[in-house]
Simulated assay, not measured.
Amino acid sequence: MIESIQIQQIAEIVRRAGLNDQTLSMLREHFSDLHFSYCLDDELGADEPFLADEDFNLYLVDGRAHCLKLTRDPECATGLLLAEVEAHA
């Protein structure tokens, strides 16, 4: 389970610090009970993000079973996937 306040805190940290290796390391340290992954948003296909931002989208991950899957339910979420949104020229 991920509480909505945690999701908002994580999103604010990424907004301020940017989505990079240092930010991910800090998030993993500060929110050690959660799993964090990173990718480019266009690698995800048609899934809608749980939270959309200008430079990144945030997806919830359910890792309770043997396979990871995206979820929109914070009660089932065990981690977050932070996806970088690339600006298209």
Rank of each mutant, 00 (worst) to 15 (best):
V85R: 15
H30E: 10
D62F: 05
E86A: 11
G79H: 08
H88E: 14
E12L: 11
E54K: 12
T71P: 12
L44Q: 00
A65I: 07
V14R: 05
A87D: 14
I2Q: 02
L81M: 11
G79E: 02
D62N: 10
S37M: 13
I13H: 05
S25N: 08
G79R: 07
D42V: 05
E43L: 08
G18E: 09
T71R: 08
I7L: 14
L44C: 02
L40G: 01
D41S: 06
Q6V: 06
Q8K: 11
G18Q: 10
G45V: 00
D21T: 14
R28S: 14
L24C: 14
G45Q: 00
H66Q: 15
I7Y: 03
E48S: 15
L19D: 03
L40C: 01
L82P: 13
Q22W: 07
R15S: 07
T71F: 10
N20G: 13
A77M: 12
L60R: 14
L19F: 04
L58T: 07
C76E: 11
Q8N: 09
A17V: 03
A65M: 12
H35E: 11
D41R: 15
I2P: 02
L40K: 03
S37W: 10
A65T: 11
R72T: 09
T23S: 05
S32A: 12
A17I: 00
M1V: 09
F36N: 14
C76R: 12
L27D: 06
L82K: 11
L27C: 09
T71H: 07
E84N: 11
T23E: 03
F56V: 04
G63I: 01
S37P: 02
T78L: 09
E3M: 01
Q8A: 14
E43P: 01
Q22F: 13
E29P: 00
H30W: 04
G45C: 01
R64Q: 15
L80V: 15
R16C: 01
A17C: 06
E29G: 04
R64T: 15
L27K: 08
L70R: 11
D73H: 14
D73I: 13
S37Q: 13
A83P: 12
F31R: 04
P49Y: 01
T71E: 00
E48P: 08
Y38P: 11
P49R: 04
A46V: 03
M26E: 06
E3I: 03
A11H: 04
C76W: 03
M26N: 03
D55S: 07
S25L: 08
E84M: 14
N20T: 13
D33L: 00
C39Q: 09
D42S: 07
L19T: 03
R72D: 12
E12K: 11
Q22E: 15
D33C: 00
L70V: 05
G45M: 01
D41W: 02
Y59M: 14
L58Q: 08
A87F: 12
K69W: 02
Q8V: 12
N57S: 15
I5E: 10
E48H: 12
A89I: 12
E54R: 04
A17F: 04
E3K: 06
D73M: 08
G18P: 13
E3S: 03
R16V: 04
A65E: 12
A65W: 07
M26Y: 06
F36V: 13
L34K: 03
L51K: 07
